[in-house]
Design a protein around this nucleic acid. Sequence first.
DNA 1: TACCGTCGAACCGGTTATTTT
DNA 2: CAAAATAACCGGTTCGACGGT
Lengths: 379, 379
Amino acid sequence: MVPPTPAVPQGKRPTLADVAARAGVSTALVSIVMRDAKGAGAATRERVLEAAREIGYRPDARARLLRSHRSHLLGVQFGLQHPFHSDLLEGIYAVAEPAGYQIALSAVSAGRGEQRATDTLLADRCEALILLGPQAPTARLAELAGQLPVVSVARRLRGSVPGVEVVRTADDEGARQAVDHLVALGHRDIAHIDGGRAPGAADRRRGYRTAMNRHGLADRARVLPGGLTEEEGAAAARTLLAATPRPTAVLAFNDRCATGVLDILLRARVSVPDEISVIGFDDSHLARLAHINLTTVGQDIPRLAELAVGRAIARLEGAGTSGAETSGGDTSGADVPGGEAVVAPHLVVRGTTAAPVHLGPGGITPTHGSGARGASAGG
Amino acid sequence: MVPPTPAVPQGKRPTLADVAARAGVSTALVSIVMRDAKGAGAATRERVLEAAREIGYRPDARARLLRSHRSHLLGVQFGLQHPFHSDLLEGIYAVAEPAGYQIALSAVSAGRGEQRATDTLLADRCEALILLGPQAPTARLAELAGQLPVVSVARRLRGSVPGVEVVRTADDEGARQAVDHLVALGHRDIAHIDGGRAPGAADRRRGYRTAMNRHGLADRARVLPGGLTEEEGAAAARTLLAATPRPTAVLAFNDRCATGVLDILLRARVSVPDEISVIGFDDSHLARLAHINLTTVGQDIPRLAELAVGRAIARLEGAGTSGAETSGGDTSGADVPGGEAVVAPHLVVRGTTAAPVHLGPGGITPTHGSGARGASAGG
DNA sequence: TACCGTCGAACCGGTTATTTT
DNA sequence: CAAAATAACCGGTTCGACGGT
């Protein structure tokens, strides 16, 4: 019934003072050793480390940053239900931690708004904020930017908000690449299922329209209301199937949306890509699955993460310029401080796009495609 | 060029002392007012709040918890690539914050192991750890449990680890419900695509086998190696299609896996549920999509979250019992402190299960099903 | 003698500037 | 000058003490 004395006493965790007492030195010296700073002898250093190990000492991150004015803490707000944000987080960790910065996460979900998320990050004394796809009004972002550097990832802001940096993919360019690819294959009736008010949706829509115009296909352009989910893609696909003329290619807002489209086409026995080509956006894990094998526009997630973290750190370590030095129309993707960083997307061609069977009215009818792509029942 | 004086000075954020000076009171009093504690006059209270508002004061969470020995901080470790964890997190926030506890998140990903994740949580002075689907060896969990209360969610531990509480779904029971449902529909050739070494996989496998045995179908039981992803489900489905006899029903490890199966069946023109019934596990968003409409075993996520947080808080606020008081075989799902909390799953019947067309050798052949379920091209 | 509102000062666990040896 | 100790300090919380009904 008598439990053995636990190796580590539960009640109170060891402090600097405990280590100091055990090693027979002052707390200041222990602090020096723990931070691997200079100012301690080799022998003493060893003795202190030994003592710390013996009693299982761990520095208290909060007490530490209370004194040192730099906290080296980046606050990241993300949406729980967005796989894309998870990918970004992975990249953010990978860049921030080697650079000597810690990450404080704060999630946004149905029951927890952005206000609450950023409030806790501020209370945690983050030095800068990285917001993934924020939906907050511009005024709120400006308010935050008045207190600390703010980086908005994947959300474009109308007009520049002082103090807020934007890191995003060139969504219009991505849509253009998709349309160009389809046109090069011979498609003319290309529809777009859009993302409504989602971040990036407006740009993709515009990029689609612009590209169609440039190819002289303005009168064939069709934008259908869609969304971010399979469900919305499926709904739009049903509409498309009933449309006349039926499009020979579809650019969906993202991969999830495209997956919904594929599912409906499959059920309706419409062959992809022979009868209809489909393109997604994001190059998510989904798109890479062998049986989906989706042609898609890839976002350069590592680069987005690197830029977001880099911008935040640059603002912290550079001159403390308060105002925003908005850079004009420079969308080269270069790392221009104070402006907008735009990362180029790249088309990933997989199995859901091919030349159309009919090349439009009066066009050539090529040899019929090989039927269903990919896996049948074989082993 | 001269920017207007910012409302909130960038350089230094206001402190208690600033508020105190502005309101003409002591910092002690401001502290009392900010915490809404008793001991301050109504008039003063108002004046202090006003001053705080004017200069945009925010309490520093870390300095605060440095002094007060309770931090009211729960550390949560989760996997970035697990939608299931996202759902749990949503529930955890919903329970913890109203209970007066803050959440500190630490993500596990390819480049960031569990060791690192828990290390940062400890450095942040969390009072307890909630680990979602931890893969760490038992010894590591025991080590952590020696320092603070630990709750493992969805990972069952062989033998009880002192100080570690487990909150999980009765996975075996879920598999049993699925098999019972299929058998009641008339299925006998029921295959299981398992989850390998994933948390819960062993229990689901066992539940499947046990249920098959109980129905006298031991010799028909087939377990195929699968996994957590669509890809692995698709691979297993290809194997199944080639098998003789072909099963009339499949229980997949989870919904993603089941989706992969559905996709392959669809491509192979095998009608679901007429030719093959499919059941998933998790009742994820995926399963609820109209065009997927997957019969699945639902986990009670709000309940899991509630139990996980509840256990952690109970350990913190209850008597500081250090050792584990392992409760024996009580799997009633009741909230037994110190033991294992097992939450009952529930079958959600949707459109991917139905009576088989053939009732086995020599059985009745009912009227042929109506063909493809669900949406064709209609509007 | 009772509060009640308020204040000064010690304190939490570290870091850092300034001595001291 | 290097190694080590002393003490002030970060931004709050907490407690004992004090003046005024």
